[in-house]
């Protein structure tokens, strides 16, 4: 429990100035749900903590057909879970949010914070990847946009440079006839860290074949990852059981799981295959059959033993 100075900026510019002044001695926090745990254990010992809670304007969720979904850096996971827009148009993200920890943690934790913490097991991350999220990153020298696929560098590591702050996410508007789902596999039905998590977001074209497929896997590699081989296997193909099973096999092959206290490596790979198959089936069915009621999404996302 090392001591630190606690700073509360009231604008992004002020926050950037604080980061510039304190350099690597500073740590930026949003909901602090990861920070407090790691600070208590002594894993993180910043001299300065810069808390973004009081920066106005970062807590908005906006949607329009042209720009898609905009998520500010202080939008909490619970905000996302409760958003009707997200539930209706980004079902995989709604599933990721509802599978995330418990209500108290979701009320504090932010989606952008979940990205910046860069845990391979972060529950919103596969869904954000599958919904093709783009990240707005600002610094004292300006701003840049980075696809989420390029943000994750390693466990706990991102492509953000010192002095940069991620302020916004954009998720493009899903194509017509889209569907998606995230399923979390963990021994416990709530308040647990994923052993494996898989999100699939698909669109079905007028010909009845997959027109786009994005599959993202969590907790089976050093970072959350897309499975391009499996995606490529499906695009242009009809959503048959055989095609989906083959894609799931490819996705599991692409995984690079480790063994830890939660699970063995091979079991993770087997589960990645099962969850890929289940999310793809559901995504394909709802793409043409209409959206799923949120309570069903919630059940599918977290229930143990199908």
């Amino acid at each position: 429990m090392a001591r630190f100075d606690y700073l509360e900026p009231h604008s992004v510019d002020e926050a950037l100035g604080m980061l510039e002044k304190h350099g690597t001695a500073a740590r930026l926090v949003a909901g602090s749900t990861d920070f407090l745990v790691r600070w208590r254990t002594g894993f993180w010992r910043p001299e300065v903590v810069v808390c973004m809670q009081h920066v106005p304007g970062l807590d908005r969720i906006d949607f329009n057909d042209d720009d898609g979904l905009s998520i500010g850096a202080m939008v909490t996971v619970q905000d996302i879970e409760q958003s009707d827009t997200v539930r209706a148009r980004y079902p995989a993200l709604a599933a990721g949010a509802t599978a995330f920890a418990g209500v108290q943690v979701r009320n504090l934790a932010t989606v952008v914070g979940n990205i910046c913490n860069a845990s391979p097991a972060g529950d919103t991350l596969p869904a954000l990847l599958a919904h093709d999220a783009q990240c707005r990153i600002v610094s004292s020298s300006g701003e840049r946009w980075l696809p989420l696929t390029e943000v994750f560098v390693g466990p706990g590591q991102t492509a953000l440079a010192a002095g940069e702050i991620m302020t916004e996410l954009r998720l493009p508007t899903p194509a017509p006839n889209s569907g998606g789902l995230y399923i979390k596999h963990s021994p416990r039905g709530a308040m647990d860290i994923s052993a494996v998590g898989v999100a699939s977001v698909v669109s079905i074209g007028p010909d009845g074949a997959f027109s786009s497929v994005r599959i993202a896997l969590g907790a089976v590699a050093p970072t959350p990852m897309r499975a391009p081989g499996a995606e490529g296997r499906l695009v242009g193909q009809p959503p048959t059981d055989q095609n989906i099973a083959e894609a799931a096999r490819l996705a599991a092959q692409a995984a690079r799981p480790i063994a830890d206290v939660r699970s063995g490596a091979e079991y993770r790979r087997e589960i990645a295959q099962v969850l890929t198959e289940r999310t793809l089936r559901h995504a394909a069915a709802t793409a043409v059959g209409g959206a799923t009621d949120f309570e069903d999404i919630r059940r599918l996302a977290v229930q143990t033993a199908w």
Binding site: P187, R188, G189, A190, M191, D192, I193, V261, R262, V302, T304
Partner: peptide, 16 residues
């Protein structure tokens, strides 16, 4: 002890 916390030592919750 490899899992000295309630985040890794999993007691059942109401949902289970």
């Amino acid at each position: 002890v490899r899992n000295p916390s309630f985040a890794s030592y999993l007691m059942p919750l109401a949902m289970d």
